[in-house]
Design a protein around this nucleic acid. Structure first.
Length: 561
RNA sequence: UGGGGGAUCGUCUAGUGGUAGGACUACGGACUCUGACUCCGUCAGCGGGGGUUCGAAUCCCUCUCCCCCAGCCA
């Protein structure tokens, strides 16, 4: 992946690793991306994925994909499959696919080690009692009555927990650290709990499962992870992470480094909220193009490269930040601008009759597939007497700065010739129905007369050859920058009612009916589009991934005042 | 109110004693058979108050604000 980032920007983790390598603290970098398979990945995870793979890649190491599957109540195989697909889609190949559950036997041994050394004990109270004894933020906790249970008894109990002799919640294994610690994570945290629950990978082999704190660091150590990169909320867990590594006979000593998670405006990124959007039908599923999930942004038309570039652009720090959604869109434009073939498509059609164009005749024009990259070749587009143009490209009472079609005015038809609007035909309601225009034969593309300057150029599609298609225009899902930050209103109240606009019959240039799902095009002057999985030759469907920058829209807004 | 983090242009981010820099946005202009792209230019910042110093974003003191932690979730 490093070919995409010739000059990776410095950030504190990169700097720190560089120094460690120079000082000889490490001679290689091994990282891991450790999702819990209890939900789908979203754009927030992309930052972590890119960071982890980039660090290993840049410093000659490798990255594992490790599923943190320590809680079988919430985890499912389908999430594992989806996550695997998502990481690969982003463009990364992990060195090893690991599972915390691979280490259950080892972790069990480690637990025994702690018990035998008087560093862990079995507590036989229920969750409520343990909670009550934990103390509060300002008051220390009080020791469990079982805290000084002798090692042999704890060991016996723990072995019987493992053997399945007890019901869920009857006992728990706890580290014996410090009930008065100001850091609540150090107040004898739970290491193992009983869960008679079939595990997606280990089946019924285990009925006790390690907690995150007990599994994560030790898994890192077992895999030889040098840098365990995680988000800020785990900072409080680092003392525990280090404590366990220090007191256990683990094969290596990883270090945890925290960075701030990615936040985007005009969306939500918490699993709970995303779940509600799907469950309550605000979107059409996890892969709805408005969703910030990998499945969603992929279907929306975001490319892996644009996401990677975006992640590199935003940097890595410990300060919390909210990145404008537009930053992601710009990266998409930058990527697609370079490589997406251009096509003409009329979204809101209005008919134009070229009065001096021979009826029944078709003239084929050459059109470049890309204005800056001739390697993308050319194509032929048909011109006929009747064509479609964009309704918004005609204005009857046009302001001075309006460079498109107006009564008596001229405009160039992209790749073809210049036309003049001679007559406006309206229906009974007063809406423009048809425009009668005449074209200038001397101004055909390629001819000397084509050099004549007209201010505007618009796109068009031959009415006879037009391919009818469904086009889905997506906009931000929420109408406020921080939907989750409003304490007065439920975030769903801020859903943008116009986040999806379906155009039933857009008119596309012929050929586009053969677009394969996932193929990107720029519909000139309109935006970047991708063929949806729903698309077929019979009924093409395109999603608008992002609009083009539109300075006219801005100007128009200003003119209106 | 205990503990752990954070605060630099509108946004993101460099800068650990020596002229606060970059990117994005915005704005202005050039170019243009996409009002796109590209190019050029402009605006704009060290949370507040003290102190140390010839000199402070950086060191010291103090205040303020924001985030995280009291799951047998991760």
């Amino acid at each position: 992946m490093s070919e995409n980032v010739p000059n990776p920007p410095a950030h504190f983790i990169r700097n720190r690793i560089r120094q460690e390598l120079e000082s000889g603290l490490h001679d290689r970098v091994v990282t891991r991306f450790p999702p819990e398979p209890n939900g789908y990945l979203h754009i927030g995870h992309a930052k972590s994925i890119v960071l982890n793979f980039a660090m290993a890649d840049e410093f000659g190491g490798e990255t594992n994909l490790r599923f943190d599957d320590t809680n079988p109540i919430k985890e499912e195989q389908r999430y594992v499959d989806a996550i695997r697909e998502d990481v690969a889609w982003l463009g990364y190949q992990w060195a090893r696919e690991c599972y915390a559950s691979d280490y259950f036997p080892k972790l069990y041994e480690y637990a025994l080690h702690l018990i035998d050394n008087g560093l862990a004990y079995v507590d036989s109270q229920d969750a409520d009692a343990i909670r009550a004894q934990r103390g509060t933020l300002t008051e220390p906790g009080t020791p469990s009555p079982h805290r000084d249970r002798d090692r042999a008894e704890s060991r016996d109990l723990f072995e019987r927990m493992r053997a399945g002799e007890f019901a869920d919640g009857a006992h728990v294994l706890r580290a014996k650290i410090d009930m008065a610690a100001p850091n609540i994570n150090m107040r004898d945290p739970v290491l193992y709990r009983i869960r008679h629950q079939r595990h997606p990978r280990t089946g019924d082999e285990w009925c006790i499962y390690p907690s995150y704190d007990f599994a994560h660091g030790q898994s890192d150590a077992i895999e030889g992870i040098t840098h365990s990169l995680c988000t800020l909320e785990f900072e409080d867990h680092r003392p525990l992470y280090d404590w366990l590594i220090e007191h256990l006979p683990v094969p290596s000593k990883p270090q945890q480094i925290e960075f701030s998670r990615l936040n985007l405006d005009f969306t939500v990124l918490s699993k709970r909220r995303l779940m509600r959007l799907v469950d309550e039908g605000f979107v059409d599923g996890w892969d709805d193009p408005r969703m910030p999930t990998f499945a969603g942004i992929r279907r929306r038309g975001f490319t892996p490269r644009s996401i990677r570039n975006f992640c590199n652009e935003i940097g890595v720090t410990k300060s919390e930040s909210i990145i404008p959604f537009g930053a992601m869109e710009r990266n998409l434009r930058d990527d697609l601008n370079e490589r997406a073939p251009r096509r003409m498509a009329v979204l809101e059609p209005v008919k134009v009759v070229l009065t001096n164009f021979t009826e029944g005749e078709t003239e084929w024009f050459d059109a470049a597939n890309h204005p800056q990259n001739p390697e993308l070749g050319t194509r032929k587009v048909p011109m006929t007497r009747e064509i479609w143009i964009e309704r918004g490209d005609f204005m009857e009472d046009a302001p001075k700065k309006f460079f498109r079609l107006k009564p008596g005015g001229e405009v160039r038809l992209r790749n073809a010739f210049i036309i003049r609007c001679d007559e406006v035909v309206k229906n009974a309601a007063g809406d423009v129905e048809t425009l009668h225009c005449s074209f200038d034969p001397e101004s055909r593309s390629g001819l000397p007369g084509a050099d004549r300057k007209v201010k505007g150029t618009i796109h068009w599609v031959s009415a006879e050859h037009a391919v009818e298609a469904e086009v889905r225009l997506y906009d931000r899902l929420f109408s406020v920058p921080h939907p989750a930050g409003d304490k007065e209103h439920d975030f769903v109240e801020h859903i943008n009612p116009e986040s999806l606009q379906v155009i039933g019959s857009a008119r596309l240039e012929p050929g586009l009916e053969n677009a394969k799902p996932g193929e990107h095009y720029q519909f000139e002057r309109t935006g970047y589009f991708v063929a949806d999985p729903d698309s077929s030759t019979e009924k093409p469907v395109f999603n608008r991934a992002v609009t083009l920058r539109d300075t006219w829209a801005k100007l128009e807004k200003q003119l209106r005042g």
